[in-house]
Design a protein around this nucleic acid. Sequence first.
RNA 1: GUGGUUGUAGCUCAGUUGGUUAGAGCAUCAGAUUGUGGUUCUGAGGGUCGAGGGUUCGAAACCCUUCAAUCACCCCA
Length: 449
Amino acid sequence: MIKPGIPKGTRDFGPVVVRKRNYIFQTIRETFEVFGFQPLETPAMENLSTLTGKYGEEGDKLMFKVLNNGEIYNEAHQAKDNKELVSAITEKALRYDLTIPFARYVVMNQHELALPFKRFQMQPVWRADRPQKGRYREFYQCDADVVGSNSLLNEVELLLIYDTVLTKLGLQGYELRINNRKILFGLAEVIGKTELLTDITISIDKLDKIGADGVRKELQERGLTGADIDTIEKFLAIDGSSEEKLAQLKELLQSSSTALKGIEELSFVLNSGYATFHTTPIIDVTLARGLNYYTGMIVEVKAPATVKMGSIGGGGRYDDLTGLFGLPGISGVGISFGVDRIYDVLEELKLFPQTAQQSTKVLFLNLGEASSRAAFSYMMQLRQLGVAAELFHEPAKMDKQMKYADKRAIPYVIILGESELQDNLVSVKNLATGQQEKISGAELISYAF
RNA sequence: GUGGUUGUAGCUCAGUUGGUUAGAGCAUCAGAUUGUGGUUCUGAGGGUCGAGGGUUCGAAACCCUUCAAUCACCCCA
């Protein structure tokens, strides 16, 4: 006998959990749809060449590769090192995110697509990471992206999507943090070390985790001089209202035209006058985000501080994503929801509504042949009206059947016993209130369950 | 990839410097209750103490190995 189990970092979702997850998916999908985005699905596997090199060195390591079928033994033995081995025996990999497959799709279908193309996609992605709290090896992303438009109005709309969805889900106290890669690039430019852009951003991104001293130490290790670090610390010290932050940025980075462009973009997104938010986006100059392809606005959604979950979503603008696949000059901007983390947050804050947890509304008790025949007929009528109903599978003691309804959280039980059958009535019991009433068959059909 | 913590009933966990037959709560099943659940009472079933090896008269406990879970770092949703 083999011991049943599932791979590390993957999960089964039972009925109750699936319902709650669907509630999140539905909320996100509805919002994407009303904002004018169109659905897209891509395969679980992509060609390895499509994915490698797009997520940095770390990303390549965390990619799940799919072993080729057939005779690979000889090929494997010709490989001289690990890298050759991988390319000899694998040519496919599981999807690592939804953005790169989307870019691939856009390039492949560029002639059929009406630009700007707005698509949403809700599918699982896989990462060979070591699992921990809020981190899984298989998890869902819900992405909305616009390609083929440089308008900053897209940024505004995408922020509004975050605002709309999270408000609908009843979440409060989250933060919508935005920044602009051009500003970070400008900082590196002012220091005169654009080649260290990634090192700088990775370090300052950790400010709230390791503190100012920690950042200073790490910057030193990454090859920044004392003068460089002074400039960076001035940058990190930027504080105040959005207007004040923008003014300070302008002052500090005035010698970089790229930075000024980024500041202007950030300013537009915040002050366009097009939108009002439930939760106002805030400028976070330390926000860097991992994926290297971002070039403009970047955004990250931080879960309410009380739940210690970190990021529940993120996104940004990437000017030349499709260029990697031979279609240069097309700009994209997108956002992503991390459904699995949002689930954990809603669960912890007890924000799932009752309606997200209900399945069958009505259970007909099975009290013998005559009872079950009458019940079955009523049940089918209710089902035709869209009321989820079921009949207990076999005659059993009432006690047992009531317990079943209780455990399944079925709100109504219908009793068709001898006396009901005799009077041509049915007894409807509301399990939440304990109240019970006898009504006619016609009344049952129009009953407000 | 690096480091820490934890593995005892379906679940959450007790278990004395190593000492007789390994316990509790919850859950399950049966009964109290032959037309009424969620409360209560009574009873029952359920364990290779993660696995393998070692120390010992004796191991759930101590040592080694291994597997798994979990948390943190790196990185990320």
